[in-house]
Design a protein around this nucleic acid. Structure first.
Lengths: 337, 337
DNA sequence: TTGTATGCGTTATCAC
DNA sequence: GTGATAACGCATACAA
């Protein structure tokens, strides 16, 4: 049997309420009894039943986190940031992954709700176009923070990067390095971040006086395999591209490997920029120029925002969309010395 | 206000107990009323208060997981495996990271205990030599599963790989490829897995009729920086090593980069094997031969074991140590074609 | 400064 | 099959 506050109370001839107060550092309890009670609690091996307390106070001190894939470097960095801030503020973090599967995302989210998490931080799955499971939270006034894959339809804090600008800068950089025919391998245009990256690419191309060529743009789901297929397709053109802006590093890697096998040199023949700064992009040959997203910081920020909301539920919120700084990291894949 | 079973009961002129039973598919409730109650619950937007139920039943359906670093590929793969199995069995997973900091590990573990997790899956921090926070679980008969960094002092299921054998095989492979002076960059010998890897190395060396040379063994904390320093040290020897078995891929990567800068060729001049099969090891030049640990499977296995324990708490357990299969992945860094 | 009484929402034990 | 009641451990309003 676990020790409860009643056991401590009985032993010391106090009431349970006094014990409860002492343990919670209620200032109305005298220094002496508080010390005595805490000491005794310690000796008796008392461990508070947080479950009971949460049930009573309707506060779990738990933050739910939903990401598409835990083992992607970007997401695990975000989680790491969330966890660090949460821990320091006395919150526990419950993590689930949707596997980019809407059914699972839906179920997970409901479970988190039923578990009465104090707030939810989420990056949406690829196929999520119905948002009722999230409305559940905003309707019941449970703090909600989106990051990365956000959605316009729901009012909440959002943490993003300026994908449009990133796409623009990456493409412009390629053009500045002398590229005249920049191709783009992008993601599904249903997803806002990929649409934005592509729009940035288009702006840079037009601004530099080049034409948008349909044959230089490929959209797919940005896996390793898709990247290879995209490369094949692009290099089947009569007029070959001399640079490619890839919407993620995985695809850029596929391209590098494909080109190596076909004796086309990066960066001598083709310049390359990726996206996300995956750990491998720095060490592959040639190192891949890429956009660095501050995953860890995004996580910290998300946690800060949600904890602030949790602690100020009554005061009205102005929901803000926070754009985090990115960095174009220029490496060998996009520079001709 | 949230809808409760009492609200449903009132509306339908049933008792709360009947509603509770119907919702839990208790066979004593008639088909008709069960359907009616479920339908009404749905209409009223009823969401069970799992907190209350957990409190009552003393079962949270939650598994606690503690790892040193969430954003290491190996650990996030393990977590991913745990999460997948847990989800399918109706469990929620709470994840924390210790940052290899004993204080934090201690505090986290106590918090998980107070939150009444049904079980704990843990890989210990680098500096954990006191285990009272884990005894807490085994003493109270709360299922506990260790993986990767395990400990002999506590009886529990353990999921490991055969580090000794891995070290042996890796070293032997290098010798078979013609190496005559194999060096080793290892981790802290306080940590069992690193000790075992090194012992495997030693066995292979001796078995092949070579001498153990102190100057060919470096122990450090296996960071990127440490790897570079170790390489410097090794190549200051009068008689240079012609192969290195590194206790992780990070260090192997450092060595590759250091050697490249010093015009020593891998694999022509020096053969190399790493450990863990980090994502970058496949794509770096040259690709690094390494030991693949089945992180995802280890996670699945850990979850299966702990869920089985949770569901069979009364039946006595025979604690087993499960050794998962590894694979020596041979790539260019260790082969001379 | 401390004690008494009450209830959070659910499930389990009886009873009918 | 269904209902009444108690209990889980804690925090809090109110009393003293």
């Amino acid at each position: 049997m676990e020790t409860t506050i009643h056991d401590i109370a009985k032993k010391l001839n106090f009431s349970a309420s006094t014990v409860s107060r002492a343990l919670n550092n209620n200032p109305k309890i005298s220094e002496a009894t508080r010390k005595l009670i805490k000491k005794t609690a310690d000796e008796m091996g008392y461990r508070p039943n947080i479950l009971a307390a949460s049930f009573r106070t309707k506060r779990t001190n738990t933050i739910g986190v939903v990401v598409p894939h835990i083992n992607r470097h970007f997401f695990s960095s975000v989680i790491s940031g969330i966890e660090e801030v949460a821990y320091k503020s006395g919150f526990t973090v419950t993590i689930s992954q949707s596997n980019d599967n809407f059914e699972k995302e839906n179920k997970i989210t409901h479970t988190l709700f039923s578990n009465r998490v104090d707030g939810l931080i989420i990056s949406l799955g690829m196929n999520t176009i119905d948002f009722s499971h999230l409305k559940l939270f905003s309707d019941k006034n449970i703090p909600l923070v989106f990051f990365d894959r956000v959605v316009d339809e729901i009012k909440a804090h959002k943490i993003v990067v300026d994908d449009f600008d990133c796409g623009y800068l990456a493409t412009k950089h390629l053009i500045e390095q002398g590229a005249k025919r920049v191709a783009h391998i992008g993601g599904s245009l249903n997803i806002k971040i990929y649409k934005n990256r592509q729009d940035g690419y288009i702006k840079a191309i037009k601004e530099s006086g080049f034409e948008i060529e349909e044959s230089l743009i490929v959209n797919n789901s940005l896996t390793r395999e898709d990247g290879t297929n995209a490369a094949k397709k692009l290099f089947r053109n009569k007029k070959l591209p001399d640079a490619i802006f890839c919407a993620n590093d995985t695809t850029a890697l596929s391209v590098i490997i494909y080109l190596r096998e076909n004796n086309i040199k990066v960066p001598e023949n083709v310049l390359l920029v990726g996206f996300s700064n995956e750990p491998f992009s720095e060490v592959v040959t040639p190192p891949i120029s890429t956009i660095k997203q501050p995953g860890f910081l995004m996580g910290k920020k998300a946690a800060e925002l949600i904890i602030h909301q949790i602690n100020n539920k009554n005061t009205k919120q102005n929901f803000e969309t926070i754009t985090m700084p990115t960095e174009l990291i220029i490496r060998n894949s996009s520079t001709r010395n």
